[in-house]
């Protein structure tokens, strides 16, 4: 049984987690109209025999989505981190949004920011 070191909850059995698949694929922006980009995101997988970056969610625990690096040949886990680049903010502030808006473009969000 895989044992995953949740950065929030500690070392836990795999059956507390939900698998989320390949984390190396890039999700297009929500308003990206390019079918090819979405096709590749949804369907095309490198599927390496070796180190695999993948999502797991600690559903019976902190419910954070995690990014795990694991070797598909022997299941050895090399690293675990929160999938969010920064952990979820405890409180919402306008400044955090302003900072983030530099990195992601989103016309919908701009209208409210």
């Amino acid at each position: 049984m895989l044992r995953i070191e949740c950065p929030c909850c500690g070392l836990r059995d795999q059956d507390e987690f939900r698998y989320g698949g390949d984390a190396s694929v890039t999700r297009p922006g929500h308003d990206d109209p390019d079918p090819e980009a979405w096709y590749r995101y949804v369907y095309v997988r490198a599927n390496p025999a070796g180190l695999h970056r993948e999502f797991w969610q600690h559903v019976i625990g902190c419910r954070q989505w995690l990014m795990v690096e694991r070797d598909t040949r022997n299941h050895a886990i090399a690293s675990v981190a929160f999938a969010r680049k920064a952990p979820a903010k405890k409180s919402f502030t306008q400044t955090s949004l302003a900072q983030k808006s530099l990195t992601k473009k989103s016309p919908v969000r701009k209208s409210t920011a």
Binding site: M1, Q14, R73
Partner: peptide, 13 residues
């Protein structure tokens, strides 16, 4: 088992 694998072995769960 529900996670990518080439290991030809599964787990106890």
């Amino acid at each position: 088992d529900g996670y990518n694998s080439y290991a030809q072995r599964g787990n106890l769960g």
